[in-house]
Design a protein around this nucleic acid. Sequence first.
DNA 1: ACCGGTCTATATCGATCGCTCTAGATGCCG
DNA 2: CGGCATCTAGAGCGATCGATATAGACCGGT
Lengths: 190, 190
Amino acid sequence: MTDTRSRLVRTAEALFGAQGYAGSALKQLTDSAGAPWGSLYHFFPGGKAELGAATLAFAGEKYGEAWRRAFARTPDPAEAVWRMFEGQARVLAGGGWRAGCPVAATTLDMAGLDAALRAACAEAFATWLAIIAEALEANGLPPSRAGALAHLVLATLEGAMILARASGDPAPLLDAGAAVRDVLGRELGR
Amino acid sequence: MTDTRSRLVRTAEALFGAQGYAGSALKQLTDSAGAPWGSLYHFFPGGKAELGAATLAFAGEKYGEAWRRAFARTPDPAEAVWRMFEGQARVLAGGGWRAGCPVAATTLDMAGLDAALRAACAEAFATWLAIIAEALEANGLPPSRAGALAHLVLATLEGAMILARASGDPAPLLDAGAAVRDVLGRELGR
DNA sequence: ACCGGTCTATATCGATCGCTCTAGATGCCG
DNA sequence: CGGCATCTAGAGCGATCGATATAGACCGGT
């Protein structure tokens, strides 16, 4: 079954988000996932790096889907983005400010790491940026402007999550999110 | 001499910024700093956590000073903030996109870590936020608005640095920085 | 010359790291 | 039932982790 494999990836996503890539031990992963140690290297012969790449790809798809849903459910992109900020504030607070974005955490741990991991981080971010930019373009913004604003949206969200986690306070997410919402609202002309 | 101690802290700042807290080994630190292993536990009897706290305090002061200088040199806060984004783009690119913010990296590694470390991260961020907010207040913004915009500025900068590092591209920093500059310019009424 | 505190130098500790190996379940196909 | 690929199980590898212990170098003050 691929059940064990998917459990490993899901657990790794949570673990990387909470403690980073370097800070997460494989033993802790198998324990926490309830998965046998032998299976780890059966599914990921490439070891931790391959597991990391798979985890980043999973996270990229999972949160990409969340972005898509947000834009589908809320017609106004500015409002959809705001709800992502607001939603993350609730999620992080609900988890005691322990969880975070696994892609950002891995990016910051990856100085001398596998180049494939670096590429996996970049690809996850690129996926999200493309979805955001597309939603802005669909509402009349020219591609170059949409791409630049997507950078603003994602950068601010990732950064605000860090500030919120450090302080244990949703204010950075809410303040920065509201400002980004206003920028988008003005750019979209409403 | 405190020379060795300061060399350790400086090297730790670079190391944490590049590979995170968990990803940086103390052996690598002493080697890279050219400092004797015995000195490490002489200056930091509390071990890695104490060294980490000292490093975060140092980074908080160092970059706090950079923020102060930026606002002192450039009268328009919007322009000063923009120059910080631009400057970071140059610094990161010059370092091959390996270096990053040690405070953000430590924050993302600190799930089950020492509570003192978490507090040290929060304090470094709070220092920077206060400086940014003060500069905005000095230009006529009410305190609550200045605080909210400081959240936007710092969150966006930290997040954009992550995106830029992952992609090896200054565009996130430049795009997001320009957008933040425009927001500040509008709020300050020019 | 001697002493006391500061700092350096190594050798070593147990624990844990990522990883490998072999043996045994398990399940699907003939 | 037998044969084969998939998956599990866990002992154990060398390396490295953070941390400790102890001995010596250095140096100003008396």
